[in-house]
């Protein structure tokens, strides 16, 4: 257990030293929030009701899908993996630590956004903060599981970036955070349902009133977790 906690703290430090993750988990989401928050609330005053949720969905999706896979590729598609194996460290160790650290970073970014948004744009805070943060935790977990799949399945840093962007862009565009999903063609509306961002946004606005959103996220989490386990097993051979 000591090794696990030491590893978790170390991974946290490594992520801080790794500027790319900080950029994807903090700087870009918060700068996007500062700019788009101003635009959204000016153009559509009703956006004040959902700005925290929509910007959080953007930030978490970006941090997870763009920030995490490269860290996993660094371990699993390189000689780092062999060094872990050679020194008796199980392969799940790196995967869990990277995701745990990213979870904490993304949660912190979301908390910053939660407290800054009302002061900057006079937006409405979620009515039930406890439930809101619970929903946020579920959404981060699901987003990380999808990011984990990308990081384990794709073996190359350049390809990883491409795949991440290919999943990130439709996640954001079809999730309803930029414009109402009802305005999209039906096919796009349905396509958006395969991404966690769509369900996460609904869940964080509706605060578990609609169990369907939570179940959809848990289903994605279950599928992604099984696939991650299969990929880890394959990698360890």
């Amino acid at each position: 257990m000591k090794a696990f906690f030491y590893g978790a703290a170390l991974q946290w430090k490594l992520d801080i030293r790794n500027k790319t993750l900080l950029l994807n988990c903090y700087l870009i989401p918060l700068v996007f929030f500062a700019i788009m928050g101003g635009i959204f609330t000016s153009v559509m005053p009703q956006a004040k009701d959902t700005l925290i949720q929509s910007m959080t969905i953007f930030g978490v999706t970006m941090g997870a899908l763009i920030g995490v896979p490269p860290s996993l590729v660094e371990i699993y598609s390189s000689d780092v993996k062999k060094v872990y194996q050679a020194n008796g460290v199980p392969l799940w160790f790196g995967f869990v630590l990277v995701n745990l650290s990213a979870f904490v970073h993304l949660f912190m970014m979301s908390i910053i956004l939660y407290f800054v948004a009302p002061r900057m744009f006079d937006v409405v805070l979620p009515k039930q903060p406890g439930v809101y943060f619970l929903c946020l935790a579920v959404f981060i977990l699901v987003s990380l599981s999808v990011a984990g799949m990308i990081g384990l399945a794709v073996k190359d840093q350049t390809k990883t970036s491409m795949v991440s962007i290919l999943i990130f862009l439709p996640s954001i565009m079809l999730s309803g955070i930029m414009f109402p999903v009802a305005l999209l063609p039906k096919a796009f509306e349905h396509a958006g349902k395969i991404f966690p961002a769509t369900w996460g946004y609904k869940l964080m606005i509706e605060n578990i009133q609609h169990r369907q959103d939570l179940f959809a996220l848990l289903l994605i989490l279950a599928i992604a977790s099984v696939l991650c386990a299969v990929l880890l097993r394959k990698i360890s051979r």
């Binding site: 000591k2 090794a3 030491y6 590893g7 170390l10 430090k13 490594l14 030293r17 790794n18 660094e74 371990i75 390189s78 000689d79 780092v80 062999k82 060094v83 050679a86 020194n87 008796g88 460290v89 160790f93």
Partner: peptide
Amino acid sequence: SASLPKHIKAKEAIQLFAKWN
């Protein structure tokens, strides 16, 4: 051909693997 995460310090790597083992 061995490698470690590029931002890990030498002493941190030694401590990590020592604690794990």
